[in-house]
Design a protein around this nucleic acid. Structure first.
Lengths: 178, 178
DNA sequence: TCAGAAACTGTCCGATCGGTCAGTTTGGCA
DNA sequence: TGCCAAACTGACCGATCGGACAGTTTCTGA
C-alpha cells in the first residue's frame, strides 16, 4: 500500500469516527507515522484529503444509479441488494457523510454527495409520496448508516459473517422501502 | 429568556449542526451577541456547556424509562408513543448524541447517554434476539434521529403538522420494533 | 442612595489549527 | 557512479483554539 493510500484510509476512519472539523492534519500524520508536511505533500489541503477519502464512494454510487437513469428503478428488490452491497463496502464513507455532511456546506465533494441523495430520493419517488413514505426513506438511509458504524454500542461486535448482516439489512430495508 | 438559557439553546443548535469539536466558544458568543468571556462566565468550560445542552434530554429519557425498570416494557406500542414524543421534543439533543457521541469518549454526560442507550436496548431485549432484531433496533434509533434533523435534505420542510409527523413515526417504529 | 452581588468585558496565555517553504533524504534509472 | 525526481522533514507563519483573570458595568434590595 502506498503512503498516499494509507493516509487516505487513516483519514477516512478518523473523519468518520471523530468528525472532519475535529480531526487535525497533525493527528492523521501521527497515526500514519509521518510528518504533517508529508500529509500535505500527498494532499495539497485538508479539503483535498476529504475529497480523496469519500470521492470513490460517490463515484461508485453513481455507477450503481446510472442504469436507473434510463430504465427507472424497476425491480426494487434487486436495487436494494445493490444498495446494501454499496453500504457494506463504503460504510465509513456513508457514515461520515450522514453525520458530517449537513455541517460541510460549500464543500464540493459534499455537494456532489448531496446531489446523489437527491437522485436516490427521486428514484424512490420520495417527493411524490406521502409524508410517511418520505420518512421511511430517511429512516432507512440514516438508520442503516448509523447501525453499520456503531456495532460496539449495540454489542454487535460478534457479528459472525458479512453475509448474515447483508441478508438482515436487505430484509429490513425491503420492509421499509420495498 | 435568561442569557444562560439563550446560550444553551444556541450552543445546542450549533453542536447539533456543526459538531462539538468544530464549534468554537467564540462562534457561540457571536451568535448570542456577547463576548466569549460571558459564555465562560455562565458555563465554566466548553464541556460544561455541552453538559447543560444535552443533560435535560438525558434526565427526561431516564424518567420515561424509570417505570419500565420495575414493570418491564409491557405494551410496546404505548412505550413507542412515549419514545416518539421524546424524540420530537429533544430532536436536536438526540441528533447530536447520535452524530457526535461516538467521538466524545470520556465525556461524562456522553457516557450517561451511552448508558441510557444500553438500558433502552435491554428493554427491547436486543442482545437476546437475533442479529436482525439487533439491527432493527439500531436502524430505528439512528434513522429516526437522522430523519428528524435533515428535513431540508428530503424536502420535508413543508411538514404540515407535528401530529402527522408523530403518527408516521409511530407507525414506522412499530413496524420495525413493535 | 449606596453597597454588594451578578453580569459582562478586554486582554492575555500557551497550545494548536491549516498551510508555506526551503532544504534533506531516498529510490530508480542511465 | 552520478543524477534527478519523488518523498519527506522541521521550522515557521498568522489565525484561532479553550481558558484565566482583573477590572468594569448593571442590577437589586436595604
Amino acid at each position: 500500500m502506498t503512503t498516499r493510500e494509507e493516509l487516505r484510509t487513516i483519514a477516512l476512519a478518523e473523519f468518520a469516527a471523530a468528525g472532519y472539523g475535529a480531526t487535525s492534519l497533525q493527528r492523521i500524520a501521527e497515526l500514519a507515522g509521518v510528518s504533517k508536511s508529508s500529509v500535505l505533500y500527498h494532499f495539497e489541503s485538508k479539503e483535498r484529503l476529504l475529497e480523496a477519502a469519500i470521492g470513490p464512494a460517490i463515484d461508485r454510487m453513481n455507477i450503481v444509479l446510472a442504469p436507473l437513469q434510463v430504465a427507472g428503478i424497476g425491480d426494487r428488490r434487486a436495487f436494494l441488494e445493490a444498495f446494501v452491497d454499496f453500504l457494506l463496502e463504503y460504510r465509513l464513507e456513508v457514515n461520515m457523510f450522514i453525520n458530517q455532511g449537513p455541517s460541510l456546506v460549500d464543500v464540493p465533494v459534499i455537494e456532489r454527495a448531496n446531489e446523489l441523495v437527491r437522485r436516490l430520493a427521486a428514484f424512490f419517488e420520495v417527493n411524490s409520496g406521502s409524508l410517511e413514505e418520505k420518512m421511511r426513506f430517511g429512516i432507512a438511509l440514516g438508520g442503516a448508516a448509523y447501525m453499520l458504524c456503531s456495532a460496539q454500542t449495540f454489542d454487535l461486535t460478534q457479528v459472525e459473517t458479512i453475509d448474515e448482516t447483508r441478508a438482515a439489512l436487505i430484509t429490513i430495508l425491503t420492509d421499509l422501502l420495498g
